[in-house]
């Protein structure tokens, strides 16, 4: 009995971490069609922002949930103004530019923080379920992912800003005709997407040893999740994270963690072969 509970928690955790890793990219790539290859580095910077803030005496939760998203959001803002805004609509060019950016960020982080592993310990203690120990921080990650998805939905669906953003992404000329500045809206959306990446990096920071090249570990999973999700932002994110998280954990528990990773990638290949436009091109059609 205990073991099924523990496995359930691990599965939810795997899904939740995929959601967190991919949320920022879903906004930047899914909504804005900017192939942000520096997404992993945005997460890495979120981690460093958290560790630095904690080192300066800031409460760890404030550092994770407020400082890191703000810092990375601002970095995203600068990047958008200097580079990305010239490249909207040029998919391949954004890829090259953001790849260059990712190298720059890795270089800068190496210069500032050095090429050594740093980290902070998890702020939530582990606890016991029957004969098993569970990492208490897993629950925090699950809760954060749920809150994030609900908040994303509420903002995009329920607020005027969300409506304007969605409208601009679909037809920026129409939005302009109605008196909204697409330039401003793109800027704000990129800020928001970067902040989400920073938040994800911050929340995952206590679980890993952070090095300037840490971003590379996330980038592939984030892209697979977002692309397999398809056209709907939130439904796509949740459905593909759920599929991949389940496949990964089932094979991890049945065979080994390496096979779990392999299974995730094979599942992605099969899924994209069967549904080239992503899960939400067939299911949950028209959902947000």
């Amino acid at each position: 009995m205990d073991i099924s509970f523990v496995i359930l928690v691990e599965m939810l955790y795997a899904i939740a971490s995929l959601v967190l890793i991919s949320a920022g990219l879903a906004v930047v790539f899914g909504m804005m069609k900017v192939i942000n290859l520096a997404h992993g580095e945005f997460m890495m910077m979120g981690g460093y922002a958290t560790i630095t803030a904690v080192g300066l005496g800031v409460n760890v939760f404030i550092a994770m949930l407020i400082v890191a998203p703000l810092v990375v959001g601002l970095i995203g803002l600068v990047v958008e103004r200097l580079v990305i805004r010239h490249l909207y609509g040029r998919l391949v060019d954004t890829m090259l530019a953001t790849w260059g950016l990712s190298l720059v960020f890795i270089g800068l982080a190496t210069m500032i923080f050095g090429n050594t592993t740093t980290g902070i310990s998890t702020p939530i203690p582990g606890f016991t379920v029957g004969a098993y120990q569970i990492n208490g921080y897993n629950f925090f990650i699950i809760v954060m992912a749920v809150v994030l998805v609900i908040a994303l939905y509420a903002v995009l669906k329920g607020t005027r800003a969300g409506l304007i953003a969605r409208g601009t992404m679909q037809r920026s000329d129409m939005a302009a005709a109605l008196g909204y500045s697409p330039d401003r809206i793109y800027m704000a959306t990129f800020f928001f997407g970067s902040a989400l990446s920073g938040l994800a990096g911050a929340i995952l920071a206590p679980l890993v040893g952070l090095v300037p090249t840490s971003g590379g570990a996330y980038i592939a999973k984030a892209f697979i999740t977002v692309i397999a999700g398809g056209p709907s932002l939130i439904a796509g994110l949740v459905s593909s994270a759920t599929s991949f998280g389940l496949v990964n954990q089932i094979f991890t528990f049945a065979v080994s963690p390496v096979i779990g990773e392999v299974a995730l990638l094979i599942a992605a290949v099969i899924l994209l072969r069967a549904m080239p436009q992503g899960i939400t091109s067939r299911f949950f059609k028209g959902k947000l």
């Binding site: 073991i3 523990v6 496995i7 691990e10 955790y13 795997a14 971490s17 004969a131 098993y132 120990q133 990492n135 897993n138 679980l207 890993v208 040893g209 840490s214 590379g216 570990a217 954990q249 991890t252 528990f253 080994s256 963690p257 390496v258 779990g260 990773e261």
Partner: peptide
């Protein structure tokens, strides 16, 4: 015996397996 590629940083499921 479990082997991990050098970029694996999530050991949650492994820790559960070890406990099993």
């Amino acid at each position: 015996t479990d082997f991990f590629p050098l970029d694996v940083s999530d050991f949650g499921s492994t820790i559960t397996k070890i406990q099993q």
